[in-house]
């Protein structure tokens, strides 16, 4: 039926097609121009509510009891790893805000407390959170523009928190004749301004990775942090004012949303650098108001959602099994 009157139809069809294609491209261009993205992120959401009292950097402060946690699954970044999987499978994340400061609490299970890097073969436990430097709200769905905007990483290390140890502290009875000088000059990395070598630096390093640069320490180190190990669990708190001291860094505000990701290093597994457990992007949402009451979402929504899911997928299963039986029979 399509072969009749082929020639004249062809021309008009071609014109119509061209018009359609042009319309699509123009529409896409307009969306891009105005940064109007109809899609939405559907990842895990970590919500930061206002804290009932200021917990500071204490991971065990009671204010954290009210914060609702999310379990963020992690996966190994490395192909070859010794323990048969990213050795830390999930982190439990919470967020609060108080006085225009954002607090992130990360807790994970780790049988070994690795906080010394005195011996050459020892690596420390660590955790990092990563944000796009420019809140990627325009296209949250696929976190695009991440490379364009660079990322901002807050990196807590157990060994940085513990501080440097000298042989006499580590090995009882060890003896050193003398050190001719304790000048910073002879701690070469300190003299070179390497933040990891600086005994004055806190346990959290602020790092930026710009579009094409590699990971570098931020000019201003303004993230505070504290980790506590107990009962086979690390709990680490990060704290920073909404607005970073350095323009390259992620900025937050009441009501803002941004993507974030987690990474955990397990020192006893030799984790360092890219050898770590890393999460998918989750969405961090900063709520202006107080934490909701124990009720949270109303029951009707929960019932509706569960009903919708079970109803639709049940119908799907019925169709899949029943339908293919019919197809089989028709054959």
């Amino acid at each position: 039926m399509f072969t009749t009157n082929f020639a004249p139809r062809f021309r008009s069809a071609r014109l119509r097609t061209l018009g359609l294609v042009a319309a699509i491209l123009v529409a896409a261009g307009a969306l891009q121009l105005f940064d109007a993205n109809p899609a939405a992120s559907q990842t895990l959401r970590l919500t930061a509510y206002a804290a009932s009292s200021d917990p500071g950097t204490d991971p065990n402060h009671k204010a954290w009891n009210d914060a609702v946690p999310v379990q963020v699954p992690l996966t190994a970044q490395l192909g070859a790893y010794s323990a048969g999987g990213g050795s830390i499978p999930t982190v439990n994340a919470k967020a609060l805000h108080v006085d225009n400061r954002l607090l992130i609490r990360v807790e994970w299970a780790d049988k070994t407390q690795d906080e010394s890097t005195t011996r050459v073969q020892d690596f420390a436990d660590a955790v990092a959170v990563e944000f796009p430097s420019r809140a990627a709200t325009s296209v949250p769905a696929i976190c695009m523009g991440q490379a364009d905007a660079g990322v901002n990483i807050w990196h807590w290390r157990a060994d940085s928190q513990k501080g440097f140890q000298e042989p006499a502290q580590v090995y009882a009875g060890s003896q050193v004749d003398m050190y001719p000088s304790r000048d910073t000059l002879f701690f070469t990395a300190r003299a070179a301004g390497n933040p990891y070598a600086n005994p004055e630096a806190g346990p959290v390093q602020t790092l930026v990775s710009q579009t094409f640069g590699t990971l570098t320490a931020a000019t201003v180190q303004d993230v505070k942090g504290n980790g506590v190990y107990s009962n086979g669990n690390w709990a680490v708190v990060f704290e920073r004012a909404y607005t970073g001291a350095d323009g390259n860094q992620a900025a937050f505000a009441d009501g803002a949303k941004t993507d974030m990701a987690f990474a955990v290093w397990n020192g006893s597994e030799g984790d360092r650098n890219g050898r770590k457990s890393v999460s998918q992007f989750v969405q961090l949402s900063i709520m202006g108001g107080d934490a909701p009451g124990a009720g949270g979402t109303n029951k009707l929504t929960v019932f509706l959602a569960i009903g919708l899911l079970i109803g639709l997928s049940g119908l799907g299963v019925a169709l899949a099994t029943g339908g293919s039986r019919v197809a089989e029979r028709n054959r």
Partner: peptide, 11 residues
């Protein structure tokens, strides 16, 4: 290449 714990770098 040798590790130096007092600066956490290798020298």
């Amino acid at each position: 290449s040798m590790y130096r714990p007092s600066t956490r770098t290798s020298e």
